[in-house]
Design a protein around this nucleic acid. Structure first.
Lengths: 142, 142
DNA sequence: TCCCAAATGGGAATAATTCGCATTTGCATA
DNA sequence: TATGCAAATGCGAATTATTCCCATTTGGGA
């Protein structure tokens, strides 16, 4: 129940009402380390007998994204958007193009690069999207 | 006219027929340093009085993408895919979230990181998507 | 030149996401 | 604690981007 209050504060800080749906979606995102699509979340909600509209799921995710509470992730060669909490530590994903498994890797190699961009181009970096793809451990060589 | 033959060879190497449409699309991509959407290309073709179907533009781009001739680029907060030639030097984009201008930056900060991923996780890196967003020179501070 | 697999045209179909509007709800204030 | 209203939601329709289907055309090898 701690996270519920935590999320309430988070929403208040973003000037958003804390609704049951928003908090539940945040909790689902928190439990899942990997990015989920709107539909993934919708299905999980239904499985927990929570009545919600798919539009609402989209709206909640988009709202939270605009407030920089959730990240919108583009998985290569996947037509739908995925979302995850900007919680834990900043990380990136390795996508296996064969088995489509996603591996999260803590840390970020871009800090220096972003400073370079600011100095060299006067560009104020706000964030970045980085997805690495290739063959995972099990799929290498096939 | 040189590039035409160059593209013919490129297509032959990829076991693709060299059709007028494919070559024209490659030439459009070559002339434009920045990523273009399927529709952008379609419009450019129409402006040059070239009759083509939008489906064909999509198909050509997707085919060239699968053969690693063109890159499929995800521009943050843009619903459509963009494409550019895997020609010139490997580079990345800075997207200004205010004026939506895109700046290409030569070079890549990820070579070391990819080696690290291979060693640490046994992941065979095939490629990556990196887009940096923020405020450009002119929009900083507003 | 002939042939056939591959490429294309064009409209219909699909998938993901957004919109419109009526209803409900969170929360600030009385 | 009750009230009012802006914000959030439900739900079906609309929109957008992309893919599919199938009849027709075309590139390029024999």
């Amino acid at each position: 129940m701690k996270s519920k209050n935590y999320f309430k504060e988070m929403l208040k800080g973003a000037e958003l009402k804390s609704t049951k749906h928003r908090i539940t979606i945040l909790e689902i995102l928190k439990e899942n380390k990997l990015p989920l699509s709107a539909e993934d979340i919708y299905i999980k909600l239904k499985q927990n007998d929570i009545s919600i509209s798919l539009s609402t799921v989209y709206r909640v995710l988009e709202t939270l994204h605009k407030k920089d509470i959730v990240a919108k992730v583009n998985i290569p060669d996947d037509s739908k958007a995925a979302y995850e909490l900007y919680n834990n530590e900043h990380h990136h994903h390795l996508l296996c193009v064969k088995c489509r498994k996603i591996l999260a890797v803590e840390g970020c190699p871009l800090e220096e690069y972003e400073k370079f961009l600011e100095n060299r181009f006067g560009f104020t970096v706000k964030g970045h999207n980085l997805e690495v793809y290739g063959y995972c451990n099990s799929c290498t060589g096939y």
